[in-house]
C-alpha cells in the first residue's frame, strides 16, 4: 500500500497491458480485480454483439464483454487460451475478454502522450493517451468511457 501511495505521490502509476489482435492496450491496475481464463459464457438475449454473455464469478453474475468487438475490431473467437480481465467499472464489475495479458507497466504522466486527432467516435470514447515503450505503442483505455454507468436506466 505504501508503495502505491508513494508512486502516486510521484505522479507515477501502474498499468496492466494486454493484447487484442496485433494491438496493445492498457488499463489502470487499480481497476483490475483479477485475471482468469475463458470458459463458455451463458448467452443473453437481445444483447449487443460484443456482449458474450454471463459467467459465474464465485456466486456473482459477471457480464463478459468481447473487448475487440467493443473497440470496433474483429470479434474474438474465444479459446481456452483467451483471458478475462475482471475489472471494476463504476459500481459494476465487468469481465473483459482479451487475447493475452502482456505486461505490467509503471509509468509517470510524462510517459503518456495525448491521443492524436482521430476521426472515429469510438476511439475518442475510450482512448485517454498513448504510451511509447520499447518501440511498442500502447493505448491507455479508460473503461468508464466504454461503459458509462447505467444506473439511471436500471432504476
Amino acid at each position: 500500500m505504501s508503495y502505491v501511495v508513494k508512486n502516486l505521490s510521484q505522479g507515477s502509476r501502474e498499468l496492466i497491458a494486454f493484447r487484442i489482435g496485433n494491438q496493445e492496450f492498457c488499463v489502470s491496475i487499480m481497476s483490475v480485480r483479477e485475471i482468469r481464463g475463458w470458459t463458455p459464457a451463458t448467452k443473453m438475449p437481445h444483447s449487443p454483439a460484443y456482449m458474450m454473455g454471463v459467467l459465474n464469478l464465485r456466486g456473482a453474475v459477471l457480464p463478459i464483454v468481447d473487448l475487440a468487438a467493443r473497440l470496433g475490431m474483429r470479434p474474438a473467437e474465444p479459446t481456452p487460451r483467451h483471458v478475462i480481465i475482471v475489472a471494476q467499472v463504476g459500481r459494476k464489475i465487468v469481465g473483459l475478454l482479451v487475447d493475452a495479458v502482456s505486461d505490467i507497466l509503471t509509468v509517470t504522466d510524462e510517459n503518456i502522450q495525448p491521443v492524436p486527432e482521430v476521426s472515429s467516435e469510438i476511439e475518442r470514447q475510450f482512448a485517454r493517451g498513448i504510451l511509447a515503450i520499447d518501440k511498442r505503442m500502447i493505448c491507455l483505455v479508460e473503461l468508464e468511457g466504454l461503459f458509462p454507468d447505467h444506473e439511471s436506466e436500471a432504476a
Binding site: 438475449p45 454471463v54 456473482a60 453474475v61 457480464p63 436506466e153
Partner: peptide, 23 residues
C-alpha cells in the same frame, strides 16, 4: 442488474449445479 442491466424477457439469473449461469 448488479453488474449488468435489465435484460428484456429475463427476470434474473441463477447458478446451476454445473457452476454455470442460467437465466
Amino acid at each position: 442488474e448488479a453488474n449488468y442491466m435489465h435484460v428484456p424477457g429475463i427476470a434474473a439469473a441463477t447458478i446451476l449445479g454445473d457452476g454455470r449461469v442460467a437465466l
